[in-house]
Design a protein around this nucleic acid. Structure first.
Length: 243
DNA sequence: ACAATATCCTGCGAGC
DNA sequence: TGCTCGCAGGATATTG
């Protein structure tokens, strides 16, 4: 599922390819990202906005396929193909992105430790994993990376915020950045459907430590990776070395 | 304030 | 082989 690293990968690739081109007569000024939302900015201030949800793909000059929902054509004949097998994704044109952007909390890659701690204080009884996935709390993290971040921080996903020690909060904060940045370097995780804007798979799947690895041996301590439901979502963790 | 559940949709794997 | 069934999941709404 496209999370911050996947959408950021698409954003960077797309920016190189389409900035300066025209779409329906409107010149493209920038390609931006907020949380998991991709924003194509036009010179007149309006924007074309996408959310890929679970199975969305945005492929520059891609071949139209069975699940192609929309093709955007640029003035030079190139095109942007929007595929989405499960139809959860959406796109729309907005006059400005204010309404969309204000729904989200601080960007995961930008939040500083103090702000992170302040945000945590507001949710003392919430379990840490669902909170990391809450876009109003912090923007960009989904199921794959919440699991990977908590593994890296050695914190169990079902821990309640008020039980976290200062050191653990620091570890979570730091690993939000290191995990997401590494995932961007490898163009994200192609677990099922995700493809980048060039139609290629991301290779971070090779670096996943816990996600979809239940039953396997922990790479850190040789414990056995477990999977449980937390907040209706699959949580993967090592019960031995995550505390 | 937080949790649990339903909703949208369809590919996929399991079971028969 | 081919059917049915249940599950997965981001975000949101609703109910507890």
């Amino acid at each position: 599922m496209p999370e911050l690293p996947e959408v950021e990968t698409i954003r960077r690739q797309l920016a190189k390819k389409i900035v300066g081109k025209k779409l329906k007569g409107k010149k493209i000024k920038a390609v931006r990202r907020r949380a998991k939302v991709l924003i194509i900015n036009f010179a007149d201030g309006s924007s074309l906005v996408f959310h890929l949800k679970l199975t969305g793909q945005l492929i520059f000059n891609g071949q139209p396929l069975k699940y192609t929902r929309k093709i955007f054509r640029f003035d030079d004949g190139s095109k942007l193909v929007f595929n989405d097998a499960r139809k959860f994704g959406w796109w729309k044109i907005v006059k400005n992105t204010e309404q969309i952007e204000k729904r989200f909390g601080p960007e995961a890659l930008e939040i500083n430790l103090k702000t992170f701690k302040d945000c945590l204080k507001k949710h003392p009884n919430t379990k840490i994993k669902p909170l990391l996935m809450d876009q109003k709390f912090i923007a960009g993290i989904g199921n794959i990376y919440s699991n990977e971040i908590l593994f890296a921080a050695k914190v169990l996903p079902q821990r309640r915020v008020k039980t976290l020690k200062d050191k653990e909060i620091q570890q979570i904060h730091q690993n939000i950045k290191t995990v997401l940045k590494k995932a961007i370097r490898y163009h994200g995780t192609s677990a099922q459907y995700y493809l980048d804007a060039c139609g290629k798979k991301g290779s971070y799947i090779n670096y996943l430590k816990v996600y979809q690895r239940d039953g396997e041996k922990c790479v850190r301590c040789s414990g056995k990776i477990k999977r449980v439901k937390i907040g209706g979502r699959s949580a993967y963790f090592c019960p031995k070395c995550q505390k």
